[in-house]
């Protein structure tokens, strides 16, 4: 496997880079749209039901199906792959943030309101800080899903470590197959580890203490 990487260094690095770029852009997009959307949905009552519905619907559709559905609209290549990854990644981020904000203990909100915090202050100083751990848990799910879903981008011609797996299967080249599979798994673990650090860093100190 190491042998394969060394001999096909340039090719491997291209695929790895594509994989990482695909995942990161999908996550970046999903986070920057998902979190504001969740906050908005938590404050505007009529958005609540559609968001929950979309969330539940989205989670039940298999990833490959999402990818397949993107191809007729976006052709093949980077765009449909990114779209599919984005759609998959936004759900856990959106849902976790939304339910996190909604589930902040009522007594806490009521106390904050009773002391004279404005609705905006309650959102930014109470609800969001208390939601951070749940929010990051959503991000973690999203990242791990995106890393593995990126391998399927090979089917859409998106280019990723999935190419190695696909080629490995078709050419019955075990070396190539293993390289693709193991490096994707390693990437997923690494991403998970990084998010874990982020979680430690972003979670308010007072919430780390178990009650």
């Amino acid at each position: 496997m190491l042998q394969y990487i060394l001999t096909h260094q340039a090719e491997f690095m291209v695929l790895l880079r594509q994989h990482v770029i695909l995942t990161c852009s999908a996550i970046g997009l999903a986070t920057s749209i998902g979190i504001p959307l969740a906050i908005l949905a938590s404050r505007i009552p009529f958005l609540e039901r559609p968001v929950l519905l979309l969330g539940n619907l989205g989670q039940t559709i298999p990833s490959l199906v999402i990818l397949a559905l993107c191809i007729p609209f976006l052709g093949i290549g980077f765009a449909p792959s990114l779209a599919a990854l984005f759609l998959r990644a936004i759900l856990p981020i959106l849902m976790n943030t939304f339910t996190g904000i909604k589930n902040v203990e009522h007594g806490i909100i009521e106390a904050a309101r009773g002391m004279g915090m404005t609705e905006n202050q309650i959102l930014w100083k109470v609800q969001i800080p208390l939601t951070v751990p749940v929010m990051i848990a959503g991000l973690r799910t999203a990242v791990v899903q995106a890393v593995s879903l990126a391998t399927l981008a090979a089917f859409a011609g998106g280019g990723s470590l999935g190419d190695l797996i696909q080629q490995g299967i078709m050419m019955v080249d075990q070396e190539r197959l293993m390289t693709g599979a193991v490096s994707t798994a390693a990437l997923a673990l690494l991403a998970d580890f990084i998010i874990g650090l982020l979680q430690q860093w972003l979670t308010p100190q007072g919430l780390k203490i178990s009650a």
Binding site: G107, I108, E110, A111, A112, G114, P129, Q205, G206
Partner: peptide, 9 residues
């Protein structure tokens, strides 16, 4: 109010 009103963070 009851003690849950403290902000845990």
């Amino acid at each position: 109010i009851q003690e849950i009103g403290l902000l845990p963070h």
